[in-house]
Write a protein that binds this DNA or RNA. Structure first.
Lengths: 224, 224
DNA sequence: ACCTGAACACCGTTCAAGT
DNA sequence: ACCTGAACACCGTTCAAGT
């Protein structure tokens, strides 16, 4: 490393948590698993990598802050006056898009709890929508973890899938459950129809159809 | 289960892919994210860490082999003559248990495709069960990716959750979707019932109830 | 033929030193 | 008060050298 300040324009505003999160999310968009390292972050910020430690205790805290910001923006984009089912659909697919668009942060979305305003806003939205649907508190307690867990884990899996094959873009075009095993298998030699249909499946389609089944279950629960 | 483990002394048989996988899975049981490093593996095998490269091209290949072995054993434990719904329940919960019991390998389960005999056996089981349920090939093509994706991503998320808080055992006792946010929130001050119920939720319960909803959907699809 | 071990290019993180 | 940069203890992986 040459001693700083050559070439390169200088972002070099005073460092703040928000600008660090911005930079982290910018790096997280690229499908490079190691793209959001502290060293890359320092380069992006025009500061020493370790300066980030002034604002976040460790990597964990930074990732959670970035994730919380994604959630906050997703919730903000959901029309508040839409029917409950539309609201849930909107928040779920917005969340999926955000997580997949920032795969480096997104892979951590499945199991992390941020404790921040974004998470709280999303929680509020979920609980309110389920209550508006007509569920009792006991029913909300049953369906809310299921919906949240489904969306979080499926989205993270898709982000991880996208991170994995940088190589075969065609491969990541297909749904991640679509093993090559299935596609070339003599396993189901007669079921050509099955192979054709599965090979056309996209990750987002799988996500959506599962979500609709869960929402159907919510709707059915209100009718008893 | 393989019976070839002889206490503490010296594993040091001639290195083979199978014994390496055994050792890797042994290390993967411990809830230490970095526990399955090549260096730890070398120690466990009584060999130089890099000797593993003689048998697996890289870490990716090793993880896939270990995962495939888990799947193979899970499928082998499913009674082949049970009704289709019982078979699917058995394979799903066996898979969840295996993945959560080997969290270091399990976290990778969501998005990986092994292409091995274990994966093929599991695929065969799934397709056969759905066909036995009465689904058409087109319906199988719709529900199979959903079931596989659901189980894979939820199981991986639970494994990741278990890896994360080594610290608060009580925290990982609770379902991972259960934010502290919800538990101490003034958010729903009236809904004490909701908080109480959610705080009693376990990860495995969430997994199971979602699975049953999906299986209900499969069953309903056969009646049209 | 198979294993070894030094070496390489990375990580996240700490901390004494600078300004 | 805030940032720097060397240093530490790790990674996965490569490759020339050993047996």
């Amino acid at each position: 490393m040459p001693s700083t300040s050559e070439g390169r324009s200088r972002p070099r505003t005073t460092l703040g948590s928000e600008s660090i999160i911005d930079a982290a999310l910018r790096l997280a968009r690229q499908p490079d698993p190691a793209g959001m390292s502290f060293r890359a972050l320092g380069r992006e910020l025009g500061a020493d990598p370790t300066a980030v430690y002034r604002h976040f205790r460790d990597r964990n805290e930074l990732v959670e802050a970035a994730l919380d910001r994604l959630m906050f923006d997703v919730v903000a984009a959901v029309p508040a006056d839409a029917p409950w089912r539309d609201r849930l659909r909107a928040v779920a697919s917005g969340y999926l898009d955000a997580v997949v668009a920032h795969p480096v942060v997104g892979v951590e979305a499945a199991h992390r709890t941020t404790g921040g305003p974004g998470e709280r806003a999303m929680l509020e939205l979920l609980l309110a929508a389920l209550t508006d649907a007509g569920l009792s508190p006991a029913q909300v307690a049953r369906y809310y973890p299921l919906l949240a867990g489904y969306a979080a884990s499926m989205a993270a899996a898709q982000a991880a899938h996208r991170l994995q094959d940088d190589r075969g873009l065609e491969a990541s075009e297909r749904a991640w459950v679509t093993t090559q095993t299935l596609l070339d298998a003599e396993l189901y030699p007669t079921a050509v129809a099955l192979r054709d249909q599965v090979s056309r499946l996209r990750d987002a389609d799988v996500f959506r159809s599962g979500l609709e089944l869960l929402l159907d279950a919510v709707e059915a629960a209100t009718e008893t």
